[in-house]
Every structure is written in C-alpha cells, then in structure tokens.
Amino acid sequence: MSILVNKSTKVLVQGFTGSQATLHSEQSINYGTNIIGGVTPGKGGTEHLGKPVFNSVAESMELQPNAALIFVPAAFCKDSILEAAEQGIPLIICITEGVPTMDMLVVKNKIDQLGITLIGPNCPGIITPDEAKLGIMPGDIHKKGRIGIISRSGTLTYEAVKQTTDLGLGQSSCVGIGGDPIPGSSFIDMLALFNDDPDTDAIIMVGEIGGNAEEEAAKYISNHVNKPVISYIAGQTAPSGKRMGHAGAIIAGGKGTAEDKMKTLQSAGVHVVDNLLEIGIRTQQVLD
C-alpha cells in the first residue's frame, strides 16, 4: 500500500511534448511509472517517447487515465487543471511554478466541488518508491519503506528522503504539496491519507514560514492522527516581510514565523526538530 499513486496508476502527461515534460516523463517511464500517453494541443495523432499524443484530455479518455501530470507554462495551468477536472480525472499533479494566485483561487474551489485531488502547483510531485514517480524528484535516493513524507519544499523533501533512506527506514510515499499560497492539497489532506495507510508507520512533515497551514495541521494531528509525526520548519532565520523564494514563504505582519509554528506543533504532540539534519535520526528514535 501507499498513498495516491502506485504501479497501476495510469498517468496522462499534459504539455507532454515540451522540454521539461519530455525530460521528466522519460525518467518517470524508466522508473517504472505507467505513463499511458500525453496531451499537446495540435500534436494529436503523433507519438512521443513511444506513447500516443492527444489534442485534448477528452480524446485521451479512451485510455482511461486516472492521474494527470501537468508541465504546461504557468499561464496555462488553470486551463489544463480545469480541463483534466472536467473529464473527471481524480488525481491531478501540477509541477509548474509561478501560477497566479487568482487562478488558483478559482481552481481550488472548483476541484473541491468536484471532489478531485490536486497536488501543487510549484511542487516536485508524488513518488511511491519502486512503483510510480509522478514528478521531478530524483528516483534513486528513494527506498521502499514505511515513512510518509509531506513537504512544501522540493529540495528539503529530498533531504528528508535521503536521511530516511540512509538509515534504512525508507518511504511509503512522498508528496510535495508545493510552496504556493493556495496549494491544491494541504498538509491535512495528506496527513489523513497517511494516517489511514496501513503501510505507513510515521509521518515526516516539512513546513516553512508563511501562512498557517502548519498550525491548522497541528490542530488536525492532535485530534485525528494516531501515528507519530516528525516535523521540521524551514526559515527560522528568515526576516519579516521578505518573500523567501517560494511565493507562499513570507512572514506577513508578524504572522507565520517558524517559531510560532514549531511551538504550535510541539504542543500538538509533534516531534519537532530544530536542525534539519536530525529529521531522519529523530524519526528512527521515535519508532524505536
């Protein structure tokens, strides 16, 4: 078991023939991911990476995809997400960085109405080690195991993955929910899935400054999560009022500091580490 994706997930890539999509789709296929084809308007009927290309998501539905992986430029993400949602694809992953917030406000409300899961945008994607890789993460640092990882940051996810792999713990699934102010899925959505997954023993949650997703997660954890949660919050040294790379990583009006988040998580029973190098080791200690 795992969450969201496994080796039977049938993946449709939107923006399939673009350079980023090509690079990462190729790696995903090599990893063993079941990519069934892709969409690039105007290139329908051709083949790419040995898979069929369609003009629209609707045309591709004959292959019954149950996940869409989006690599289109930021200006077209709203369109691509809504197109996949209209066809009822239950899981949509948007890798692209730089999607306007106003687009995401509409998209988020719409996909919630339709009951569709959106991961991202501005994220590395999802991986279930040895089964499926829907995203841009390096496959070879992962190892099949029993730790679930959720993170707002790409490279910090890789840090947590590497540490748990080196310790032999491995991962059940890893989800990058992305660094934007309005993400498709929250920490809570993923905590719920990992909590119900019989093959996940502990959950690592990597947060960062800005917003209050970690505080909301803390409340959820104390009420609903019965597995140990280990957390690291990036940006303890970040100044107020400055955007730290990610669109959502900003301390606004004194709100959203790492210190507040760490305190709130701690009082919710989360194992908070203040050094990112201790994520793996603390997870191991908690499980022993």
């Binding site: 993170s151 707002r152 940051s153 790409g154 490279t155 910090l156 996810t157 890789y158 840090e159 660094g179 990597v206 960062e208 400054i209 690291y232 990036a234 940006g235 303890q236 040294t237 970040a238 100044p239 400055k242 955007r243 730290m244 790379g245 990610h246 990583a249 790492a258 203040d274 050094n275 990112l276 190098l277």
Partner: peptide, 28 residues
Amino acid sequence: SYVSLDGNIGCMVNGAGLAMGTMDTIKF
C-alpha cells in the same frame, strides 16, 4: 531569488526550502 541578511557567511543553495534550511543550519 536573493534576500540580504546581516551575517557574514554567504549562501548559495538550490531550492527555496533548502536555502532557508541552510541559513537555519548555519545559525544552529
């Protein structure tokens, strides 16, 4: 993406989260 701070250890990192994490590690 660059933000100046007050210390004396320059940082160059790939990824926003890891860049913050690196600053925190230096401070730690």
